[in-house]
Design a protein around this nucleic acid. Structure first.
Lengths: 111, 111
DNA sequence: CGCTAATATTAGCAATAGCTAATATTGAAG
DNA sequence: CTTCAATATTAGCTATTGCTAATATTAGCG
């Protein structure tokens, strides 16, 4: 499934924003999302599963808790896709910045 | 409408990829998308309208032709949203790269 | 004008996505 | 080994989305 299909949902985006700040238990995520979107625990759990299955998040058990963390690879795909548009808002990188940008791009698909 | 909602469709993404390489007439877009997705002119035109309405593309008339161009602002939104995850794949920018990255970020929301 | 080419619009249909309600699973603690 | 708390799963409903087919619009040209 394409990265953008996953990011097309506001609940999933919100969950990822939350995970961007650090690990969180399923319960934590439910609390926040429930407050902001007014949906059930079930709905949040389903979205967490979608994020897992799509490789945007990983889980580990901590007793009866499930601790979720963001998995950056799929988000890098989005960043890579944007490369083709960067020329529009970075019309001319000077030599130095170009080097850095190149280095950054090369480093991709390694980790 | 959120940028990601627009980018969640493969036809729309393909159209934007096409426009990233330069301006194209509606007909050009139809030809390419039709070949790759097998959908009608109508469907493509509807997607072009969605891209226009959402601010991802602009049009100008050239006789009976409509020439489409990519409008980068909405794509920058996506780039901005990704900022919160960049720390995951750029764990430590050296001083130089940091300067460049900062400059880049500051320049946003100006144009 | 009347015709044609290029494009846009509309109505209606079908597939999918995301939700709720109900239920299942799993681990810890008494 | 039962009970409770945390989380996941399933079935089924509904709203939305993207499509086709048909039709409308507009510009250029004879």
């Amino acid at each position: 499934m394409h990265a953008f299909d996953i990011l097309g949902d506001p609940v999933r985006r919100r969950i990822l924003e939350l995970l961007a700040t650090g690990e969180h238990s399923s319960g934590d995520v439910v609390t926040v999302v429930q407050r902001e979107f007014g949906i059930t625990q079930s709905a949040v759990s389903q979205q967490l599963r979608i994020l897992r299955d799509a490789g945007f998040a990983s889980v580990r058990a901590d007793g009866t808790r499930r601790i979720y963390a963001v998995e950056p690879a799929r988000l890098r795909e989005v960043d890579d896709w944007l490369d083709r548009f960067r020329a529009f808002w970075l019309p001319r990188l000077d030599a130095l910045a170009t080097e850095v940008a190149r280095g950054k791009r090369k480093r991709r698909h390694q980790t």
